[in-house]
């Protein structure tokens, strides 16, 4: 069964009287373990697609099956639970809580996991968050606040937060967009590792060097899928 399958997906924004078709009747499916990059010029709808797939936004029309389950029937709480346990998100501008240390930021998904199942004891939460930070190479920066970290380090904290609940799916929206090329390479190396461990990665990027790491590239233009290319 496909991990993700969309059919005839539409997304229409209304801005005043104007209707903007961010995505037009798009269909595609994604198998577990893929590493996909979505590319396209700005305004092509790539971020919108990512947010819909990542359950941060809802399509106007069409079907979205996540592991065979129609997402449109899910309650708000069920969507929150999927975001928490089943998927992780990495943003271009990191989106860390500025007043919380790296460790606290990474612990946050574990704290909310406690609403869906028995909460881990705090010591266990700390240990899990520390493991995730170690995995991204920040074992020496755990008690730093985000503004005490470099951009690359912040993005690695964000990745640690995204993977701390061991999700099957990782979404990334221009994860290297705000980073220098060296930091960008570190991030992409991390993604390679995670993908090798079985995490499905869907990433928006217009940087060809980064996008090239993906095994499959989806090219969008004006809300339509114009190319679906697999690396040989």
């Amino acid at each position: 069964m496909a991990l993700i399958s969309i059919e005839g997906l539409d997304k229409v924004f209304r801005r005043g009287d104007e209707e903007i078709h961010a995505i037009r009747s798009m269909s595609l499916s994604i198998e577990p373990g893929e590493f996909i990059s979505i590319t396209g010029p700005s305004g092509s709808g790539k971020s919108t697609l990512l947010y819909i797939l990542g359950l941060l936004d809802k399509p106007t029309n069409g079907r979205y099956l996540l592991q065979g389950t129609p997402v449109e029937n899910l309650s708000d709480t069920e969507r929150a639970q999927l975001r928490n346990k089943f998927m992780g998100f990495v943003f271009q501008s990191f989106h860390l809580l500025p007043r919380a240390t790296a460790l606290r930021n990474v612990m946050m998904p574990l704290v909310y996991a406690g609403t869906y199942e028995a909460a881990l004891p705090e010591a266990e939460q700390r240990a899990r968050a520390a493991d995730a930070l170690t995995m991204v190479g920040l074992e020496n920066r755990m008690n730093h606040l985000p503004n005490e970290l470099s951009g690359g380090q912040r993005q690695r904290v964000a990745i640690a937060r995204a993977i701390v609940n061991r999700p099957k799916l990782l979404f990334a929206d221009e994860p290297t967009g705000n980073l220098d090329s060296k930091s960008g390479k570190e991030i992409i190396t991390l993604f390679d590792r995670l993908n090798a461990e079985g995490v499905t990665i869907i990433m928006v990027s217009h940087d060809p060097a980064i996008a090239g790491h993906a095994h499959r590239t989806l090219s969008l233009r004006d809300g339509e899928l114009v190319e679906d290319r697999r690396a040989s």
């Binding site: 929150a80 975001r83 998100f89 989106h95 998904p109 909310y112 609403t115 609940n165």
Partner: peptide, 15 residues
């Protein structure tokens, strides 16, 4: 923004 971040990592509206 903090509210958005919390919701993105799995906080329900009620949280």
């Amino acid at each position: 923004q903090e509210i958005g971040i919390r919701r993105a990592v799995g906080a329900r509206r009620v949280d």
